[in-house]
Amino acid sequence: MEYIVKTENLSKHFGQEKAVSGLEMKIPKGEIYGFLGPNGAGKTTTIRMLLGLMKPTSGRIEIFQNDLKQERLNILRRVGSLVESPSYYPHLTAKENLEALRKIVGVPKQRIDEVLEIVRLTAAGDKKVKGFSLGMKQRLGIAASLLNNPELLILDEPTNGLDPSGIIEIRNLIKSLPSECGMTVLISSHLLSEIDQMATTVGIVTKGKMIFQDSIEAMRMFAQQSVLLKVSESDKAWRTLLGRGMKAGLDNGIISLPEQSDENVAETVRGLVADGFSVYRVEEERRSLEDIFLQMTREEQAG
């Protein structure tokens, strides 16, 4: 598989604190990689290292299959980024801000209007950024990251400070990038719901360690689904199941069966019917990714 970003044993220590340790990040081409973790997990630190803003304590970073240490400038030419809160020059207008960056990345002037259009800031292009709302500044930051038509776009919490409609807009924009522009996107967040709606691949980091990295489907699979049964005389039915040596829970008159294969479920239902219980409903419990995430981080902390 062709990896756009690949880190080997990447670590960053601040004195005693291990902000990132032994991180193996792999981002396949064309994916939207959701980099997920609670506050202080090491997301920003990792992203800063990917951009060469911080030197790793140890480990290696490969981007576009080139070593970042040796090819930093050539790599950065093809990368767009927004790290943490957006940076801007408040005394300049939005266009002047982009122009100051454009001069360095060296794309045609018209690109400024294009990126302003993409983030819907065209109308505010000639206003000083000092007076922008937080959301507008965030959009400007995203516009800046798109300036050089990057092949890899790295966005650190890009929907910070946006209102719901702004979030949806940016989400749709990000979703469209891989197919329309052939981009690979790395997007960090501490909100699972956000990643859930955009990402195709997920990496979960906590306390500087990667605890999960796979496709979003695999992540959903990882969730231990239980099957819920609504039956008549639930209390009695539950005891019957326990009597047969099955693992079952009872909650609010609903029986839950953890991790059951299709056959097992069929078997259980047949048994209950044979014993004279009415089975009203058989359904799968849909656990939110939030639960999965919490469970994963909790397991990590326990272990």
Partner: peptide, 18 residues
């Protein structure tokens, strides 16, 4: 102060410049 005000150092240095 131009770079420090909104920590634009990180934006500037993530561009292809040494």
């Amino acid at each position: 102060s131009i770079e420090n005000e909104t920590n634009a150092w990180k934006q500037l240095m993530a561009l292809p410049v040494s």
